[in-house]
């Protein structure tokens, strides 16, 4: 398999907010492989959302370089980058611009000056992809949070982006809404060959990602596969996060004298298999 160059590369990115002493992001360097799902985790205020905003030119970098989807993040390129990198923000209410679902999906297309006949088909297709076709004429007040987020995804999809960033897009949703948004994203990623960046503190979501990046107080503290990251255990708690369920169980069992479990991170299925093995072989 030919190595594709990373779709995002960030080199010593620093962002400072005017009113704060400590930089929001402190010399962050990382790369994101194309077509991967990367979870960015960290406690509230750790700077993880600022990272997304910097890539999209919504905050200006005070140092460092960034390349997104083959383009250097500069003032000249930023409008092109915004068509290739779509962002779903945290609050479903505050990104719904259109008066109805269809109008909202069309908003980005209108900005990109897509002719109306093409817009009609693109809006319909995008709505179909997130399963919101029946809601095309609904007003936002009559939608649940999860539905609004799916509309936001459709609005991005209509522009055929390469990358979709979820900026805590599920944190204000109920479990059903959260599940529906994540499922939609997983289906889309497979179908559209997208790269997904997901800023989250839902560790179970992160556990299902290809890569996990941990940000704490504006610094990149860890980067790796979920098993590598979650093997850290208690260090995560110190960073204001929690430990995945299976890790917690493993450490409680170890405290009770059960030491036969592998040290690596196990997902629930692997954990169940291991426990069965312990039980049946002893």
């Amino acid at each position: 398999m030919a190595e594709e160059p990373p779709i995002i590369s960030i080199d010593h990115l620093t962002v400072r907010y005017a009113e704060q002493e400590q930089p929001a992001l402190d010399s962050i360097s990382l790369t994101i492989p194309a077509h991967s799902w990367t979870a960015i985790i960290g406690h509230n205020g750790s700077g993880k959302s600022t990272l997304i905003k910097a890539m999209d030119g919504l905050v200006t970098a005070d140092g460092g370089q960034m390349t997104v989807a083959g383009l250097a993040v500069t003032e000249q390129n930023i409008w092109q980058i915004r068509q290739r990198l779509g962002v779903v923000f945290q609050n479903p209410e505050n990104q719904f611009v259109g008066a109805t679902v269809a109008d909202d999906v069309a908003f980005g297309l209108e900005n990109a000056r897509v002719p109306r006949p093409e817009m009609l088909t693109r809006v319909d297709n995008a709505l179909a992809q997130v399963g919101m076709t029946d809601f095309a004429d609904r007003e936002p007040a009559h939608l649940s949070g999860g539905q609004k987020q799916r509309v936001a995804i459709a609005g991005i999809l209509a522009l055929a982006p390469a990358i979709i960033a979820l900026d805590e897009a599920t944190s204000m949703l109920d479990p059903q809404g959260r599940a529906s948004v994540l499922q939609t994203m997983r289906d889309l990623k497979a179908k559209e060959n997208l790269t997904i960046l997901s800023v989250t503190h839902d560790l179970e979501e992160a556990a299902a990602a290809d890569h996990v990046i941990v940000i704490d107080n504006g610094r990149l503290v860890a980067s790796g596969t979920p098993p590598e990251i979650f093997a850290e255990g208690p260090a995560l708690i110190d960073m204001g996060l929690s430990v995945p369920f299976t890790e917690q169980l493993k450490s409680d069992l170890a405290a009770g004298g059960i030491t036969g479990l592998p040290a690596d991170y196990l997902n629930e299925e692997e954990m169940a298999d291991q426990l069965w093995k312990l039980y049946s072989t002893m």
Partner: peptide
Amino acid sequence: TEQALAAEVLAILRPRR
């Protein structure tokens, strides 16, 4: 709860061990 689960699993695995 996770604690209760750990206790139950321990109760099954420990006697055998």
